[in-house]
Design a protein around this nucleic acid. Structure first.
Length: 437
RNA sequence: GCGAUCGUAGCUCAGUUGGCAGAGCACCGGGUUGUGGUCCCGGUUGUCGCGGGUUCGAGUCCCGUCGGUCGCCCCA
């Protein structure tokens, strides 16, 4: 008795071979870009003690954590808040990274450059560009640029931005497609304080992040209720905004560092970028493209290592999700074909073995496969019953194989190059020698 | 939590005022005891999301429910 099929959980994805190959293509880009820029890969647990995520997070976050309870009714929420759900699936990696760094801070080099990629979980309502389980890539630079080292800090910030930009470039994106919008929370908080938000800078920052999403007629009174002179802030912000980062006086060091790394064309100062995370302390940035959610976001979090029991440590990093990145590449026509992905990932079969249909040749298929595989080659065969050479060659072609080997019997094969349509018949040993990895 | 929209073959979808459940693609086999990216022929595949109602008769109309997608809220 077959059972009924079960649906995958809301907001999750099943990766069949085609989807998995596309996923690996992106992961491969992430990993190679990180390594090129001198980052070392780390990993941590998929779930953490729930305090790891609540210790430095604002209100409303608990309700979107996957814990021991997935419901959202009042009693379960209370249980979560009171720690009755001991663990939470990670909604992001930065707290885990901070915990790991804090635990071994004294023995780690300065700077420490780490990258990570893996799944994260958020119990949100899924919609375009946002799922409940998604892949994220993080790059972080820790221990570089103390409070009295503005140039080193700018260099670290620029290096984080540069690795992010390099990833975008390696996917075929151009500065005209996408922008890294940069801001500095410390600077903007000071401006907001001057405009009347002293003591409530964080709330004002969060409200600032909604500028452009909420109609002007509504957001004006909201700032007014907070005692903020919005017109005055806008005037100050206008002096900060700059299409070229180095043209904004407050961002001169960062602009110079970005320019020396060759990525300034991708960047602009936008005084209205705030980011939702509570732990950012200075530079913040968001990778923006028209019509989609932010592709990546990050910034400086100089207090977080201390929160996890480590020494005071300057830190900057960003996260990029696979969902929006894939949408952007599709929007721009930059997602390669499946054949190209198979080639990029080294998944093309080197050889596809075909019998000419005699019992002797049929029996020789498996030994030949074993011989090829023993040489480290990717070798396949057809499992079709047909002896029709044309159909078997189609199988070889569909598999994307480089060569077809037709066993002619008695130590003789035909070697066919499926890319240029040339073929040669001869002794097995001589023909196989032509196939190199 | 709120709203819109869509659920028909493995996939993409068509299905007329309510009247026998369809096409393309995919898969398997053949045309072709030997040459692929095309052709041609044949075959397999259905709880029309689920439950109830109206009707002689429901994929079609009504009510409910579940799920997907998109938007709002939120967005670490």
């Amino acid at each position: 008795m077959p059972g009924s099929t079960l649906p995958s959980p809301k907001g999750t994805r099943d990766f069949y071979p085609i989807e998995m190959a596309r996923r690996r293509w992106i992961e491969d880009k992430w990993r190679k870009t990180s390594v090129r820029h001198g980052f070392e890969e780390i990993d941590g647990p998929t779930f953490e003690h729930v305090e790891v995520f609540t210790i430095k997070s604002g209100e409303g976050i608990v309700s979107e954590i996957f814990g021991a309870f997935s419901g959202k009714d009042e009693t379960q929420l209370e249980n979560l808040k009171q720690g009755h759900a001991p663990f939470a699936l990670r909604p992001e990696f930065t707290p885990t990274l901070a915990r790991m760094f804090a635990a071994r801070a004294k023995q780690l080099p300065q700077p420490t450059k780490w990258f990570w990629q893996g799944p994260c979980f958020r119990a949100e309502r899924p919609q375009r560009g946002r799922l409940r389980e998604f892949l994220q890539w993080n790059c972080d630079i820790l221990g570089m640029g103390g409070p009295d080292q503005p140039k080193e800090r700018a260099t670290a910030d620029a290096e984080a931005i540069a690795v992010c930009v390099d990833l975008l470039a390696s996917c075929g994106l151009k500065p005209s497609d996408i922008t890294v919008q940069i801001n500095d929370r410390h600077i903007v908080a000071g401006m907001l304080a001057e405009c009347g938000a002293a003591g409530r800078e964080m709330q004002a920052l969060m409200l600032l992040d909604k500028r452009g999403k909420i109609p002007e007629a509504e957001i004006g009174p909201m700032f007014a209720a907070m005692g903020v002179d919005l017109a005055r802030f806008d005037a100050m912000a206008a002096g900060l905004r700059a299409p070229r980062v180095s043209d904004s006086p407050r961002f001169a060091d960062l602009g110079a560092a970005l320019a020396s790394l060759g990525v300034e064309d991708w960047c602009a100062v936008n005084p209205y970028i705030a980011r939702g995370l509570a732990y950012y302390t200075g530079t913040v940035f968001e990778v923006i493209v028209d019509g989609e959610r932010a592709v990546a976001g990050g910034g400086r979090y100089d207090n977080l290592i201390e929160v996890f029991g480590g020494p005071p440590t300057p830190a900057v990093g960003f996260g990029m999700g696979d969902v929006v990145l894939s949408l952007v590449l599709q929007d721009k026509g930059l997602m390669p074909t499946d054949a190209q992905i198979a080639k990029d990932l080294g998944l093309r079969p080197d050889a596809f073995v075909i019998s000419n249909g005699t019992p002797e040749s049929d029996a020789a298929v498996a030994p030949l496969l074993a011989r090829l595989r023993g040489r480290g080659l990717h070798a396949r065969r057809s499992y079709k019953a047909t002896k029709n050479i044309g159909k078997l060659l189609k199988d070889a072609s569909d598999a994307g194989a480089r060569f077809a080997i037709i066993i002619e019997g008695a130590g003789e094969v035909t070697l066919k190059n499926l890319d240029d349509n040339t073929q040669d018949r001869g002794a097995t040993d001589a023909m196989l020698a032509r196939i190199t990895p």
